[in-house]
Simulated scan of single mutants.
Amino acid sequence: MGTHKAVVTTGIGDYDVLKYIDVPTPELRPGSVLIEVKSMGVNNTDINTRIGWYDQGEGEDDEEDKKGWNGKSSPFPLVQGTDAAGIIVQVGEGIEKYYIGKTVLIQSCTDNGWFGTDFDGGFQEKVVVPFSHCWTVNNTLTMEELGAIPCSYGTAESMLIRARITPGMQIMVPGASGGVAGAVIDLCARARNVNVVAIVGEGKKALLEEAYQGLPVTVREGRFGGEKWSKIVEEFKGCVDVVVDNVGGGGVMDILSCLKRGGSYVTSGAIAGAKVEIDMRTIYLNDLSILGSTKWADDCFPNLQRFINDSKIKPLITKVFKLQDIAEAQKAFLDKGAKVGKFVLTP
């Protein structure tokens, strides 16, 4: 079936392990489809897998054999990319030709593992995947916006399902300028009309207020350890039903203090630090629930498909890069300057 361009990650390492090369286009299998990829989001999980961040050992493992999120070694060389949106251009045996030309999102988390982590993903011009991993969409979002959805919004939606978000709740989102946090805000404030307290770093308050103008989003600016942070914690102490936190780090105890009795703290990441100290008394004396979320809920992607087709969500896009410039895109992604929203790649 010829070849196409892809970014292949050759192993654990810095940006030099990312190779933009020609790869064979896989043959179709029964029940699968060939997708021409139009856009792919940039996510923490792609970087974390590349640098071996998920390994929980004490350094005894060889640098080239760091374990992935599931405790197994990542199958390098690997086409990463947990996000992909595109057009079905060919269908395998058992799939109706009706679907040729349809716009689809590829589900990032499946029963077989993570797209772009456990098997080849979206950082390529074409990809063959089981049709059961594809979700057709039909709305006014751009391809770049669609490519920003699968991983961030899937992760966010699954956390919201686990935390049993309902109308009338107040949700707190630290690190609110990031991709997953932005998806949480969108899925709460726009799709569900749930009140959100969004905490952002210095210089980002006005950007976020403009982005969510007219929605039930209260924005506060401050970083852990600063005077503004202390004021935020004091303002919302004991007022929040659910905290959705992918930041972690030193601010966790402060964030827990903002929960009401019986509240929930749900997390699927720890970009500011994975190892934190927690006073267990805060948890049990306040009847708090601590929830982790990696494997997605069954309702996750059906919900997202419905929200997309009903125009209930709209991702924020910071900048679009070409696929061959992936190293530049990941560096920009890791720069925590005055920006909000997602970075996206296009072929």
Rank of each mutant, 00 (worst) to 15 (best):
W69G: 00
G31I: 01
R190I: 01
A206W: 04
I35S: 06
I317P: 04
I171V: 15
Q80T: 12
E125I: 05
V244W: 02
C188G: 04
Y20A: 10
D46C: 08
Q107Y: 05
N246L: 10
I255H: 01
D254A: 09
D16N: 14
K5V: 07
S158D: 07
L208E: 03
G57E: 11
F76D: 08
I283Y: 12
F115Y: 14
D22I: 10
R164H: 15
N309T: 11
N112V: 06
D245C: 12
T49F: 10
G222K: 01
Q90E: 15
S293W: 03
I165E: 00
T103S: 13
S132Y: 01
L146E: 07
D14C: 09
L160M: 15
K336R: 15
G251C: 10
V196C: 09
I255K: 06
T267K: 09
F236R: 03
L28M: 06
A297V: 02
T103G: 10
G81D: 05
C239D: 14
C258P: 01
G86W: 02
D46K: 07
A338H: 13
E210M: 08
E144L: 07
T346N: 10
S158I: 06
N193Y: 05
D83G: 03
L105I: 12
Q107E: 15
M280P: 14
V196I: 10
Y212G: 02
G41P: 01
A332K: 03
V196L: 08
R190T: 06
W69L: 15
G251E: 02
S39D: 00
P24V: 07
T294F: 10
K5E: 08
I21K: 11
Q330L: 09
S230I: 05
D16P: 00
G147C: 07
R261V: 14
A211Q: 10
V244Y: 01
L316G: 05
D55L: 10
V233P: 06
T117S: 12
I283F: 14
T3Y: 07
V266Q: 08
S289H: 13
I161N: 10
A332P: 04
I95R: 00
S132V: 07
S152E: 05
Q80G: 09
D254S: 14
E144A: 15
S32W: 04
A84R: 03
S158V: 02
K336D: 13
L334C: 14
Q56N: 12
L259I: 09
L334W: 11
S108A: 15
V242N: 02
I171N: 00
Y15D: 13
F123Q: 12
I313L: 13
S177Q: 07
S289T: 14
P167F: 00
V173W: 02
H4L: 11
V8E: 01
V79P: 06
D16K: 15
Y54I: 04
L323Y: 05
Q170V: 14
G341H: 03
K275T: 13
C300L: 06
S289G: 11
D335S: 13
G81T: 07
K237E: 14
V7L: 08
K314M: 09
G116V: 08
V240E: 01
G81L: 03
K336T: 13
